Simulated assay, not measured.
Amino acid sequence: MADHPAHEDAAGTGGAAAKPAASHRQRSVTLHDVARATGFSANTVSHALKDKPDISAATKELIRKAAAELGYIVNVSASSLRSGHSRTVAIILGDLSNPHFAIMIKQIEADIRRLGYTAIVLNTDEDPALEKQAMITALSQKAAGVFLCPTQDTAGNVRFLQQSGTPFVLLGRYFDNFPADAVLADDRQGGFLAARHLLELGHRRILFLNGPTCISSAVDR
């Protein structure tokens, strides 16, 4: 009788069980790990890393050093869930390829960084639907505040943002029928100075290239 070949398992190992590949992902260092390493309670470690005044400078320094050596990184998402807000500020602009907006982003980011905040930048392409989605993204990230250069198609999106209760400020544009905090250039005066300069040079046939007339800055110029 012919011998039958021995059946191998699906992995072709001749019956030996296949071993799963070892995972190289290390466990994240937690607040409790820092507490165990320093001998302080988790609450003390938390207060020290948040620079709370009830912890001495020497203890803060010791805990920060241990946290850095262990590679501890604050879980921002967990902190946001506990507090209801984050140390993040959203910057929502119409066209990130516009150098004007790039300069604006750089300055805002530098200023909020000094206050301990980080920025998320969202582009709308001057599209009201994308603007609404950007607002929803900012709110879902529990942004502490929003800088917004509105599309100005309508004030509906800004009204939605206001109703959320999240602090916001408009950049460069405003609505006549919807009062809101805004940081604005004096576009009317800028247009006047530019026109006067050309007239003083003797020019009379002046071409004015402007943006959409639904945008307040274009109207003011």
Rank of each mutant, 00 (worst) to 15 (best):
V76D: 15
D33T: 07
F192M: 10
Q141E: 07
Q133F: 10
E200K: 13
R221G: 01
L201V: 05
L207M: 14
K19E: 14
A68H: 08
L31E: 09
R205N: 15
V121K: 04
Q133P: 02
G156T: 10
D51G: 11
V219F: 04
N210W: 13
S86I: 10
R196G: 09
D9W: 11
Q26H: 14
L115E: 12
R188G: 08
D187M: 01
V29D: 02
A129S: 13
S56T: 11
P179C: 08
L199P: 03
H85R: 15
Q26G: 14
L139D: 00
E69C: 01
A134P: 00
V74H: 14
Q162H: 14
E109T: 04
R205I: 06
M1V: 05
K60L: 11
I73M: 15
R64F: 12
A182P: 04
R221V: 07
T137Q: 09
A194D: 11
D125M: 09
S140C: 12
R114T: 01
D181T: 09
P150F: 06
S56F: 14
T88D: 06
S79T: 13
H4W: 15
G172S: 04
E69P: 00
V29M: 08
L31R: 02
F175T: 01
L130I: 08
L207E: 15
S80F: 06
N75I: 03
L49R: 06
R27Y: 11
G202N: 06
I91A: 02
A66R: 04
S77W: 15
A57Q: 10
T44C: 01
A2D: 13
I136N: 04
A102F: 06
A6Y: 11
F160D: 04
A144C: 12
R188F: 12
F192D: 11
R27A: 12
L93G: 01
G156N: 10
E69Q: 06
